[in-house]
Amino acid sequence: MKRKLKRKIVKDIILFLFLTAGLLIVVMPMVYMVSTSLKPNGALYEFPPRFFPRIKEVTVENYQYIIGEGKFYINFVNSIVVSITTVAAAALIAAAFGFCIARFNFLGKNLLFVFIMLTMIIPGMTLIVPQYELAVWLKAIGKLTGLIPFYIAWVIPYSTFMIKGFVETVPRELDEAVYIDGGSVFTVFFRIILPLTKPGIASVSIFNFLTAWEEFPWANTVINDNAKRTLPIAIAGFFGQHQFTQWGFVFALSVLSLIPILMVFIFCQKFFVAGLTTGSVKG
Rank of each mutant, 00 (worst) to 15 (best):
L174A: 02
N110V: 13
L210T: 10
E168R: 01
L134S: 11
T221I: 07
L107T: 07
G142P: 04
S203N: 12
L138Q: 01
T169C: 07
V167C: 08
F216W: 14
F150V: 07
I152Y: 11
V129H: 14
L194A: 12
L144Y: 07
Q131L: 14
V114E: 11
L174F: 01
V155L: 13
Y132T: 15
S159Y: 11
E215K: 06
F190R: 05
R191P: 08
I148N: 09
K198Y: 13
L112P: 02
I193W: 05
P149I: 05
G142S: 08
A212G: 13
G165M: 12
L196H: 06
L144K: 05
W218S: 02
I193S: 06
V114C: 03
T160D: 12
L174Y: 01
P123Q: 06
W137H: 09
V114G: 03
S159H: 11
G108M: 03
E133S: 15
S159A: 10
W154M: 08
E168C: 08
Y179F: 12
A219T: 00
I141C: 02
S159M: 12
F186N: 02
V129K: 15
I116R: 06
T160E: 13
F113C: 08
P149T: 12
S203T: 12
F186M: 05
N110M: 09
T119A: 10
L194K: 13
T197P: 01
Q131V: 08
A140Q: 06
F207P: 11
D175H: 04
S184D: 03
N220M: 09
P217A: 02
S205E: 09
I180A: 15
N220C: 07
V178A: 00
G200H: 01
A135G: 12
I121H: 14
I156S: 11
K198V: 15
V129W: 14
L138C: 02
L144A: 09
A140R: 10
F209V: 04
A212D: 15
N110A: 13
